[in-house]
Amino acid sequence: MDKVELNVNGFSHTVLVDSSETILDTLRNRLYLTGTKKCCDEGTCGSCTVHLDGKPVLGCLTPTMRCVGKKIVTIEGISAGEDLHPVQKHLVKNLGLQCGFCTPGVVMTAVPYLENNPDPSIDEIKNSLSGNLCRCTGYKKINEAIQSAAEEMNS
């Protein structure tokens, strides 16, 4: 086991991790940040997306040791206290979720995308979220919610 210091959502944590552990397991099992979901565990579904120095990465494929010295942001750190991020707000408003299991991954993928692409078309949104699988909604409402969020973030 290695003792490492991780910066998660602005807080510093000292944890003992296995050298081959992924950041998904560290977040969920050692820091109890269970908002990041473990689903396929092989890079297929996008549910475990977190930000590493502002870049979206798949938690299940990213070694924890690679995250040392970087800023990690999880779904727990994306909103300002009780004020939801526009992406979260519009997913709720547009009914862009049912079971909600894919939602943290969708939010964590959409936020940096909208920050870099303020006025995306529906096709561009579909493409940007093509690595996030949802087995409930059929995607239409998710895409519409992201477009509404883009409009709010742009206004």
Partner: peptide
């Protein structure tokens, strides 16, 4: 190749 998020890594 793969998905937009995977292509970033």
């Amino acid at each position: 190749v793969a998905t937009p998020v995977i292509r970033k890594t």
